[in-house]
């Protein structure tokens, strides 16, 4: 008897919660226009700091409510977008393709930046990826990340085997990876982006043995903006306001270098001179053009990281 009562309470609580969940969703739709955007940490996301600081989305759509979230990795962004908590996420192309392959209803809205990506080694006898021994470990953000795919590309080129170094990988986020590299214990190389890349190279004995463009064989967009189908279809005016804001941020960065430097130095807690050096790097480029999707897709499908690939770029691009 008592069991039945408990079961009844549990079931009631369960359905009650489910219904409550549906209700809040209904309310959110009736509310004023809003956009929820996720970004990650790093200079590759610089135009977004300008949009935030200058309130460029609000400028174009005064009544809008903008929510910014900074998440530690792409997987978390993808999961939040799957759960309907985010409208737009900024990430690299390979994690986007993994989601697309698994049936996520999303497409690329625009490019955001290209940035230096480099594999930094801390041992003198490692001068290229050929020199890794089974005792070495290579730190990178996670399997399936752009860094992992780039390393696989380099391995395929050299040995014809993209998974050759997979047994050496350790996943660490950028700050932990940098600490591990500088500690010179097990981790002998770290695949990373600015500002970590530049900070690591400032240390004696650290040298870069591979860069992203070399591995890829061509220029590619590092960060793209990805929007869910629901957002694109239900709120086209907000979608276009976002694109316009990015466009304005890019031209602002070009026209007002001094103020840009000040805003970014503030946002990233980096010294202004150092920041200028990063921005002047030949591989740093902010642009809305999307480059490299098909090359990533070809490689990832060929090596079974994804099961299907888009027939052409337009298939994964909103417009």
């Amino acid at each position: 008897m008592r069991l039945k009562i408990i079961a009844g309470i549990l079931l009631a609580a369960f359905f009650g919660l489910t219904l409550a969940g549906c209700q809040t969703e209904g309310k959110a739709q009736a509310k004023k226009p809003e956009i929820r955007i996720a970004e990650q940490y790093g200079l590759a996301y610089a135009p977004l700091q300008i949009i935030k600081e200058k309130k460029l989305i609000e400028k174009n759509l005064p009544q809008i409510e903008v929510t910014w979230r900074q998440l530690g990795n792409t997987t978390a962004i993808r999961e939040a977008m799957l759960a309907g908590e985010l409208d737009v996420g900024f990430m690299a192309i390979p994690p986007f393709l993994i989601g697309w392959d698994k049936g996520m209803d999303w497409k690329i809205a625009c490019g955001l930046s290209s940035t230096p990506v480099g594999l930094v080694a801390n041992k003198d006898d490692i001068q290229s990826i050929k020199d890794f021994t089974p005792k070495d470990k290579i730190a990178l953000p996670q399997p399936g990340s752009v860094q992992h795919i780039l390393l696989s590309m380099a391995c395929e080129k050299l040995w014809g085997d993209p998974k050759r170094l997979d047994n050496l990988l350790v996943t660490l986020d950028h700050p932990d990876g940098m600490n591990a590299l500088l500690a010179r214990r097990e981790v002998s190389a770290h695949f990373t982006t600015p500002p970590y890349l530049f900070k690591e190279l400032e240390n004696p004995g650290m040298h870069q043995i591979l860069d992203g463009r070399e591995a890829m064989g061509e220029d590619f967009t590092f960060v793209v903006g990805v929007a869910t189908a629901k957002f694109y279809q239900d709120q086209p005016e907000v979608y276009h306001a976002l694109l316009k804001a990015i466009e304005e941020a890019l031209s602002f960065m070009e026209k007002n270098p001094a103020e840009t430097r000040r805003i970014l130095a503030d946002a990233y807690q980096i010294d202004e001179n150092e920041l200028q050096k990063y921005l002047d790097h030949p591989d740093t480029d902010y642009s809305m053009e999307v480059k490299g999707v098909m090359k990533f897709a070809d490689f990832m499908q060929k090596n079974r990281y994804i099961n299907r690939k888009p027939a052409n770029l337009e298939e994964v691009l909103w417009k």
Binding site: T75, P95, M104, V170
Partner: peptide, 24 residues
């Protein structure tokens, strides 16, 4: 789940994490 080799020896936590990053 936080670190572990991508290769053979990552353990069960690593297995779950790997399914997560490849959205399985």
């Amino acid at each position: 789940m936080i670190f572990g080799a991508v290769g053979l020896k990552g353990g069960l936590g690593w297995y779950i994490f790997k399914q997560r990053v490849f959205m399985d």
